[in-house]
Design a protein around this nucleic acid. Structure first.
Lengths: 216, 216
DNA sequence: GTCTATATTTCGATAGAC
DNA sequence: GTCTATCGAAATATAGAC
């Protein structure tokens, strides 16, 4: 009887420790970069001895890879709304809203991803060449269909996707710069709404998106 | 007679060495981040012994600061076209073209800047609070004037500027991702032109820019 | 599973001959 | 000005007691 209980308890401890470590690692990797981050810093932020990190994640690289893949999963899930939508106003509009919300809730993860890609994606190159490439091709097909149906202007799907990624992630990756230009204060709820509305308005207007049922 | 000559020659050597070191440093800092970059790597790429780097740039931080400020100066110069323009079609159009050209010619510098800002701008915070803040306020005033003159839709100037920075710099900072999605090949001349045209078209269209004399 | 102490490597920086 | 050799600090990772 005690065996399964102890196993369960052990598993719960493991999961909780892994969660705490991953959260601390995400923050430290985002603030210092992979090279600037130290296991000691992450351990301190997680409130654990440094040796315990190596117990759960044998190397710094493995811990890092786990952090990078988490934000990627979150972004992929945010694209569900894209496919089900009847047209660009709903699909791209919802996608912008989802990505802006993620930039607000997970700024650290976004920065870690950006840093990883900027350094040539040494750890997640396989993701780029498989999952991301397939995902992009699928979304480009949807955009081409909308164009063919006359629901938006004939823009290059890839450049439109890059613009969507760039504008939404900018609010996370360059959050410090934006905060500085905002008088040193983080964007308020209203300002986040205004940012989201601006991005939606300019992009949807720029691609000549035509509402299918309701308006913008 | 020999004194001024030797001084001139010495100065020329110094300038050339500084140039070689800065170029190597820009590349290494972009590819590895500040923490991941090592003086040894930079020295190897510059073809000089490590000790010589410390002769020209006493510390790693000073060398890094010089690299970051260089891309900043380049971006500031690119904005000259913005002010002289009669309206958004010419001004913002020329600005996008200039920024895209810089993303193509100086991808390393753009990445170093992005990395610096993502890590909280520990080295160039003073630039953000003085030069960049003033520059942004000035450009926002121009945009508000164009709006008042009915030359474009009433969009938030700051969010428009963020979008301009995000989209243009994305082609440098996320160049590796774009290249991967392009079948592993760098963008061709034609593709860079298409990217620039896409960005111009969507943004100018999205803000309802009205041509003043010539058309788009 | 946890934590202290430490082995091993590597980096930034410098001394000192040339 | 240049370069070899090296110091001292700090990092990753592990050994081993508990």
């Amino acid at each position: 009887m005690s065996a399964p209980e102890r196993l369960t308890k052990r598993d719960a401890t493991r999961r909780e420790n892994e969660r705490v470590i991953l959260e601390a690692a995400e923050k430290v990797f985002a603030e210092a970069g992979f090279g600037g981050a130290t296991m000691q810093l992450i351990a301190d932020m997680a409130g654990l001895p440094k040796a315990n990190l190596h117990y759960y994640f044998p190397t710094k690289e493995e811990l890092y890879r786990k952090v990078v893949s988490r934000i990627f999963e979150i972004w992929l899930r945010a694209a569900a709304c894209f496919d089900a939508a009847p047209g660009p106003v709903e699909g791209i509009g919802a996608y912008v809203e989802a990505k802006m919300e993620i930039s607000r809730r997970h700024p650290h993860g976004s920065k870690v991803w950006a840093s990883e890609v900027m350094h040539g994606a040494p750890v997640i190159q396989d993701y780029l060449e498989t999952t991301l490439r397939d995902w992009t091709a699928g979304r480009a097909a949807v955009i081409r269909r909308w164009i063919a149906e006359g629901k938006m202007a004939p823009v290059d799907p890839h450049h439109l996707l890059y613009m969507l990624w760039a504008t939404t992630q900018h609010y996370a990756d360059f959050g410090h710069q934006i905060e500085t230009l905002n008088g040193g204060r983080p964007l308020s709820d209203r300002q986040w709404q205004a940012a989201t509305a601006s991005v939606k308005r300019i992009i949807l207007g720029g691609i000549g998106a035509v509402a299918t049922g309701t308006d913008l």
